[in-house]
Write a protein that binds this DNA or RNA. Sequence first.
DNA 1: GCAATATTGTTCCACTTGGAACGATATATG
DNA 2: CATATATCGTTCCAAGTGGAACAATATTGC
Lengths: 155, 155
Amino acid sequence: MISPSDFLEKVEFRDAALLSFVTSAIIVPAYDAVKRDLGITRSEYLLLMALSHYPVLTAQDVSRLSGRPRNSISRAVHRMLAVGHLARDPDPTDARQARLSITETGRALHRQIAERIRVYQEEVLSPLTEQERETVVNLLTKVVAQRPSAGAAEL
Amino acid sequence: MISPSDFLEKVEFRDAALLSFVTSAIIVPAYDAVKRDLGITRSEYLLLMALSHYPVLTAQDVSRLSGRPRNSISRAVHRMLAVGHLARDPDPTDARQARLSITETGRALHRQIAERIRVYQEEVLSPLTEQERETVVNLLTKVVAQRPSAGAAEL
DNA sequence: GCAATATTGTTCCACTTGGAACGATATATG
DNA sequence: CATATATCGTTCCAAGTGGAACAATATTGC
């Protein structure tokens, strides 16, 4: 039987493939679990996540921050408004945009989602010692520092 | 202005977010360029990639190897057959499955795609020294070794 | 101050995706 | 040997996705 990880050693861009494999091992199951159990799509939790770290954002801000297109965020905003996880106020200085903020129930949901993803992260990265993990984080941080505005995390 | 990378420092699962950010910075633009310039979808190049490293595979093999569902691979097989990048022969010992192999034009296309992705990889990882990069690769390899059959690379 | 241009958020649409069910074939069980 | 179960590849369908065009509003340049 051929396993997916055998494939990694053969591929022409092995380093990217390794990064992708590890990322997927965390993100994909976590994302599936969140969608299945909480009914939240990716755009929706990116929206909640952005708003739980910044008190007020426009939809455009969230789009740029998350790397999702504006129409996806627009849909997410409507769904989250409908279930009361978001508040939207017109911006008094610019009638085009609206000021979005997260509600307490939205924040609670975000905490649930984040905790769930964190559990997957810990499990996948458990083969590394504390120090090894810190090394990886430092080196990846160095990489990110060179492209602060690149495509955004495919979280 | 808030940049996506600022977000990384705040998120609850920063390590996964870092991995995801770096992976996306390579994979997403590379994938977009391949689709735009060569008209090849992700399932299709995963198919070509698998077959350029294993002489004969069934669609099921490719599905397991790539982590893509069987119907996606099925579609990819038909498209690649239509343009002559693939050959399909009935398996004499099992009429359910077919033996897939890549043609010379398929192999050439694969080379183009792989080279293109490799260029993105080199550009994004260029902030690391040779040694640092080796360190990252070793540590990620250690992580992968613990879950050889996990979800497969989201390449 | 006014016309040209840019930006925000939305709707529309074409496309990709992956789960589920299906027919055909193979394997296991009694 | 017959029936139940599993597997392969396919088709169907519902859902998510993102580009493009759009109306409303803001900003810029003359």
